[in-house]
Design a binder for these strands. Structure first.
Length: 830
RNA sequence: GGGCGGGUGGCGGAAUAGGUAUACGCGCAGGACUUAAAAUCCUGUGACCGUAAGGUCAUGAGGGUUCAAUUCCCUCCCCGCCCACCA
């Protein structure tokens, strides 16, 4: 059990109150001061904060406090992503309402965040479940609707049977619901979508601007958006007035296309099979395919099933009749829902063709095996090579042929050069209660009509019985559903679905700029000043979902001319996970450490210091209670230093004529002090390596410990004071409570250390009068010599040879090379 | 299958425009203080040989370039994360 006479953890609540009472971290726009916007991904208010939150917010807080000391006007807000299904479940379980439950969680969370000493501007605290916030969700939605970016369509959608609601593609992880892990099924439903695909090109292109994002997040988004260049090729159906369009990235293989495959859901299938002998078999296959979940169909290397549909298509480049199949390995969601199959050069087609004994033709020559025949192929040849069996294109490299054939086909009207995207539109309606009502009205005569702006917000009724049965609980609230059409005034019905909560979090960073603005979604001048977010911090799990949606909203709002920036987050830091015993700390594993317990035992500063010291922010962090103890020890040591060794300058009485000349110990302390400032500053400016920053603070503390002051030696005491002051200032962003306390103990005038200027350093003080140079002979260290800096090589050579340790291995006449790395090392080769 | 990270003491981790590997912390061992313990302080701590001086070997494995490689190049192994029948 940690214990000292002046318990450093008991001072924390005092300083928290001080910051609060004086609104130290409240900020306003000030064009004269450079701004800095630090933001962490706001929490879902589950009530208690966990170590992941603590780590995330501590990193953010340290950056915010550092920037404040550097003179920036720092916006550092917090809020709650308060809508969502867990509140419904908790409300049922605890016999309360989601609103009450969430309210209680928020106030609990609020208190816990305060206990961590984070430098938030609490005046901007917001919750997405407040009507003053979600009103603007509805406003954005209508703006999107007016521009055709929000639309309703019937489609096969992802459905979680457990949550009883639809899910966006981004919310389906390996075929399972991201929240409850239940296997997702497909349902045909009419749902609301946002046309994020319209922004696919700029979402992809602008990733290039995000140089300060981790490359893997950019790569993940790039893959998710998935741009492919290719050709849409038109295959005429033989003896039938229809054309099948396929998309391919491999037009170079068109001469090897020996059959066509449609997705079972392809709209042409029914038309083409009607009346053929294959109709029954095809219908049976479609039913079978429909019963398989999408995740099963997409889960890789199973046998490729399919049936011939009884008709043929014509290969446009050579006029061949080729059979048309339907196959479950072709997905309706991608491309045109139809493919041309080139079994010799695509492994999937190869497997399918083998299984169904379909013809093949090699059209790209394997340079290692130019005489290969179809019969002896064990797998598709997917590498590069020259074209063969391809008419006029023979002997052209296939890379070159891609463009040539594409252009040739386009000129002849056989195909169209085109780009396809993997990104799908974003399904945002949810059949749940605890969310933003979608502000739409259905009128029998006018159709779908948006709620007029002046009627916003469409408030979520409070007195709704939640059963957990799903299926739009709002549909059962007559007072909510029944309304009149804004256009014709006749009785009409409200939309009863609510918005996915990712809608709420796609623009909250803008709302923070003027958190409680009433007239508009936000105050344009505030947003102009604060945006973009300079530093965003959060978990990698949001690499696709939230970060993509937020970028989409930013681009949309810019198109509405409400914003100047087209990217919301300049710099992104994804913090690593917190582990215990080598496993991710999680409730389900039962290996969590409750931050509350650590707080009551050690206080926030110790917790903050440990978390920052144990690993670089982006790496995994292994929880270690001994390490926590170490952080506690260090803080106490520094506290004792201030208490016992610091003397207030007023008390300090210079005695007699003390020598102004600095001795070695003085120079050494000065060097460490300046070096610490340099290194800690560097760690903030170059990549946030807080672990090494703290290690340098420990080095400085060690130097202070070692430094002796003769009783009453004012010059030395001054030097010591200076070193301690610097140490306290450098510590301030990391351990704000103790730093405030120590600053006050030192009798400083500033109200808060949070606004004291960050210390600077003197490069000259880092120099030493003598340096130690390592001497290598044939690559091995054989001696250390002490010399004055910047010795010329000739002199070094003389000194080295005079050194006994060197002389043992070197005779002057045998020296082949003499290499000098200035002020570091000498390397002699004999 | 594709992409992105990583492999350094007993542990968390330092150090890469090539230049004294193991900073800082934890742990461990010994000592001081104490009736005793805790706390605190001091000393030591990569491995091996040696009383010591000193020497040899060590950054996943193996090669290469170099006076010099954790850092650069080649081959391979292992771990983590993300994506994946994407046409």
């Amino acid at each position: 059990m940690p214990y000292t006479t002046n318990d450093i953890k008991n001072i924390e609540s005092k300083w928290q109150k001080f910051w609060d009472d004086r609104r130290i971290f409240h900020v306003q726009i000030d064009p004269m001061i450079p701004k800095y916007y630090v933001l962490e991904m706001f929490p879902y208010p589950s009530g208690k904060i966990h170590m992941g939150h603590v780590r995330n917010y501590t990193i953010a807080d340290v950056i915010a406090r550092y920037k404040m000391m550097r003179g920036f006007n720092v916006l550092h807000p917090i809020g709650y992503d308060a809508f969502g299904q867990p509140a419904e479940n908790a409300a049922i379980k605890n016999k309360t309402s989601p609103a009450q439950w969430t309210g209680r969680c928020i106030s609990q969370m609020h208190d816990e965040l305060k206990k961590m000493g984070f430098s938030y501007d609490w005046d901007r605290e917001l919750s997405t479940c407040d009507a003053e916030y979600y009103k603007w969700n509805q406003w954005v939605f209508i703006k999107m609707f007016e521009r055709g970016l929000a639309y309703k369509k019937a489609s096969s959608v992802n459905w979680c049977p457990d949550c009883e609601t639809t899910l966006a593609n981004e919310e389906v992880i390996n075929g399972a619901c991201w929240r409850c892990k239940t296997t997702v099924v497909q349902k045909d439903l009419e749902q609301w979508y946002l046309k994020i695909t319209q922004y696919a090109p700029s979402l992809l292109e602008d990733l290039k601007k995000l140089e300060q994002w981790p490359s893997r997040v950019r790569a993940m988004q790039e893959n998710w958006i998935g741009k492919s260049y290719g050709v849409e090729i038109h295959f005429k159906v033989k003896d039938f007035a229809e054309t099948i369009s396929v998309f391919t990235t491999r037009p170079d293989t068109i001469f090897g296309a020996t059959y066509v495959v449609l997705a079972p859901e392809h709209p042409l299938v029914k038309k083409l099979t009607a009346g053929t002998s294959q109709e029954k078999e095809v219908t049976g296959f479609i039913e079978k395919a429909a019963n398989k979940s999408k995740s099963f169909r997409m889960s890789g290397d199973q046998r490729k099933e399919g049936v011939f549909i009884g008709r043929f298509a014509v290969n446009p480049v050579n006029g061949e009749d080729i059979p048309i199949f339907i196959g479950d390995y072709v997905l309706m969601e991608y491309g045109t829902g139809a493919i041309m199959a080139v079994p010799t050069h695509d492994q999937r087609d190869f497997e399918f063709a083998k299984h169904h004994k379909l013809p093949m033709r090699i059209v790209i020559e394997d340079p290692k095996n130019p005489s290969a025949s179809v019969e002896e192929m064990g797998q598709a040849y997917e590498e590069a090579g020259q074209l063969i069996n391809s008419g006029a294109f023979d002997r052209i490299s296939n890379e070159e042929a891609k463009n040539k054939i594409a252009e040739w086909m386009q000129v002849r009207g056989l195909g169209k050069i085109s780009i396809h995207w993997r990104l799908r539109d974003w399904l945002i309606s949810r059949q749940r209660y605890w969310g933003t009502p979608i502000p739409m009205i259905y009128c029998a005569s006018c159709g779908i009509v948006p709620v007029p702006y002046e009627q916003l917000p469409v408030e979520l009724p409070k007195d709704v019985k939640i059963t957990g049965e799903g299926g739009s609980p709002l549909a059962g609230v007559r007072a909510f559903v029944e309304c009149s059409c804004p256009k014709c005034g006749k009785p009409a019905r409200r939309e009863t679905d609510t918005m996915a909560t990712f809608f709420d979090s796609s623009w909250y960073f803008l709302r923070f700029c003027s958190a409680h603005h009433i007239e508009e979604i936000f105050d344009k001048k505030d947003v102009k000043y604060w945006m973009p977010v300079d530093q965003y911090i959060g978990g990698i799990e949001h690499a696709i979902l939230h970060l993509l949606y937020a970028r989409f909203f930013t681009k949309f709002l810019k198109d509405l001319e409400l914003l100047d920036t087209d990217e919301p987050f300049i710099r992104l830091l994804t913090q690593g996970m917190v582990l215990k015993d080598g496993e991710v700390m999680s409730k389900s594993r039962g290996n969590t450490v409750d931050p509350d317990e650590v707080l009551s035992q050690y206080g926030a500063d110790t917790l903050r210091l440990f978390i920052l010291f144990a690993a670089p922010p982006e790496d995994q962090l292994e929880w270690n209670s001994d390490g926590l103890e170490g952080a506690w020890r260090f803080l106490n040591r520094v506290y004792q230093m201030v208490e016992k060794r610091y003397q207030q300058p007023a008390v300090l009485k210079p005695k007699g004529e003390e020598s102004q000349k600095k001795d070695d110990a003085d120079a050494s302390l000065e060097r460490e002090r300046n070096n610490s400032v340099k290194r800690v500053t560097q760690s903030f400016e170059e990549g946030y390596k807080f672990n090494t920053a703290i290690s340098h603070l420990m080095v400085l503390a060690n130097a202070v410990d070692k430094y002796k002051v003769d009783n009453g030696n004012a010059a030395k005491q001054n030097l010591l004071n200076q070193a301690i002051e610097t140490l306290v200032l450098l510590l301030a962003p990391f351990v704000p409570h103790v730093a405030e306390e120590m600053w006050q103990m030192m009798g400083k005038n500033e109200a808060t250390i949070a606004r004291v200027a960050w210390p600077s350093f003197d490069e000259n003080a880092l120099k030493t009068s003598t340096i130690v140079i390592a001497v290598q002979v044939n690559g091995r260290i054989r001696a250390q010599i002490q010399v004055t800096p910047d010795k010329p090589p000739e002199e070094l050579r003389r000194i080295c040879l005079a050194d006994q340790g060197v002389a043992k291995y070197v005779q002057e006449s045998a020296i082949k090379k003499f290499i000098v790395v200035p002020n570091k090392l000498v390397s002699i080769v004999v």
